[in-house]
């Protein structure tokens, strides 16, 4: 009986938090475009969310590209078609790994920081203080962070894919001796701008939106204690990662799967 009660409570809690987070999203974004909360705030958040994530994204992208190059080579060389390595690396990065790995790293690097920051603001009663002064904390704190996350994520994913493709080229052309023309030529013949690049950007936009939304909500709804902030930060990374992977399947099925 107790178990059934817990199950029901968990279910209701989940529906409640979904509703609360939707309301948070609506109340923060109803002000209009990215500059609605003040351009200076947006730039500041773009710096802490986007620029600070740049180093991890670049390094990760380079290594992922190099690993793809090596692994793809060992498989393709058995079929004598190592010239298709450029195609393999670029399509894998543009369609899947670029958006997904960037989103996972983004959730770990920027999402957790967002949650902890907002959670601490709540715990130290900065948010209540703002309300007392007649400043809407949603507009002042949440809105610029949401927009910064949504703007940064596609840029980071693009940089990830670009660096990865060049990392693959480094391994393939400079280390394994694949013809430079074959690597780039086959890539250009098979990658299409609208079908691969633009669809990858659409994916990363969706991921950026989901990750930032979850991070901001977890921070805003966290228990205002040190334990609560820790729990909320963990929750952000776990939920955001799962949401990204689930959403990725749906988006892939809709855009590439022909379902």
């Amino acid at each position: 009986m107790d178990r059934i009660r817990t199950l029901g409570r968990t279910g209701i809690g989940m529906i409640e938090s979904l509703g609360a987070s939707s309301m948070l999203l609506w109340n923060s974004l109803m002000w209009g475009g990215p500059g609605s909360a003040g351009f200076g705030d947006l730039v500041k958040q773009l710096f802490s969310v986007g620029v600070r994530s740049l180093s991890i994204i670049t390094v990760a992208g380079f290594f992922v590209g190099m690993v793809l190059g090596l692994q793809g080579y060992t498989i393709l060389v058995d079929f004598g078609s190592e010239a298709a390595l450029g195609t393999l690396v670029s399509l894998t990065l543009l369609r899947e790994l670029g958006p997904v790995v960037t989103a996972l790293l983004f959730a770990g690097r920027a999402g957790s920081a967002l949650t902890a920051e907002i959670g601490l603001m709540k715990a130290t009663e900065q948010l209540s203080a703002m309300e007392m002064m007649g400043v809407d904390p949603l507009k002042r704190v949440i809105t610029p962070r949401l927009w910064a996350g949504m703007i940064s994520m596609p840029i980071l994913a693009l940089i990830f894919s670009t660096v990865g493709i060049w990392g693959g080229a480094f391994v393939a052309v400079d280390m394994l001796g694949i013809d430079d023309g074959a690597y780039w030529g086959n890539m250009q013949a098979s990658v299409t701008f609208y079908n691969d690049v633009v669809k990858g950007i659409i994916k990363s936009l969706a991921f950026g939106w989901v990750v930032t939304w979850i991070a901001v909500y977890q921070g805003y709804a966290s228990m205002p204690t040190s334990e609560g902030i820790g729990k909320a930060t963990t929750q952000t990374v776990v939920i955001a990662s799962l949401a990204v992977l689930g959403l990725d399947f749906v988006l892939t099925a809709v855009m590439f799967g022909g379902v």
Partner: peptide, 28 residues
């Protein structure tokens, strides 16, 4: 303040450069 805006600007430029590279170098 200025250096902050400068780095964010660099970040945006990197994004645009990546998009251009994707368009012309990768997808031909």
């Amino acid at each position: 303040k200025r250096s902050l805006e400068f780095t964010v600007g660099i970040f945006m430029v990197m994004g645009i450069v990546a998009l251009v590279l994707m368009a012309f170098r990768v997808s031909g």
